[in-house]
């Protein structure tokens, strides 16, 4: 068992209903010893923030498949800032390489593209959390 029991919130923000990927990620993180709080579909920035506060989350993962990432990603980081929550946000799903830079600049901690291996998923989440803890 991991001595650091990370708690990660996973959610789908907005109308996009593609949940195959995020469910696989939930299981990958569980099998890596993390506690995953899966909020499910059709979440708002408000519901995600409330859950992050109440669950004292170490990281938030959002999955996006409808090309809405450049709108919704920055919207989420802005909401986190407004709520003064210093929790790394990781975005997964269909994100073209050329959009990654813009997302990172808006405050997203990491982006996981399609075809990321289980090890990449786990290490991305771990690294994002440790990077936050070091600051």
């Amino acid at each position: 068992m991991s001595d650091q029991q990370y708690r990660v919130i996973l959610a789908k923000l907005g109308l996009d209903g593609h949940d195959r990927g995020i469910k696989v990620v939930a299981r990958i993180l569980r099998d890596a010893g993390m506690e995953v709080i899966y909020l499910g579909l059709r979440q708002t920035t408000g519901s995600i923030i409330a859950a992050a506060e109440e669950e004292d989350a170490d990281a938030i993962g959002l999955s996006m498949h409808n090309a809405g990432h450049l709108t919704l990603g920055p919207k989420m980081t802005a909401s986190l800032n407004d709520a003064r929550l210093d929790i790394p946000l990781i975005i997964g799903g269909i994100v073209p390489d050329e959009d990654i830079e813009e997302l990172l600049e808006s405050g997203v901690a990491a982006v996981l593209g399609p075809g990321a291996s289980a090890e990449e998923v786990v290490s991305t989440v771990r690294d994002a959390i440790s990077a936050r803890d070091e600051t």
Binding site: G14, L15, D16, R42, N66, A67, G68, L70, T71, L72, K75
Partner: peptide
């Protein structure tokens, strides 16, 4: 597009970033 599929109008707050995309 996704808002239409979900019964939402383009001016719904849910539709932000999704209008006419898919």
């Amino acid at each position: 597009d996704m808002p239409t599929l979900m019964g939402r109008d383009s001016d719904s707050e849910w539709s932000l970033g999704e209008v006419g995309r898919a």
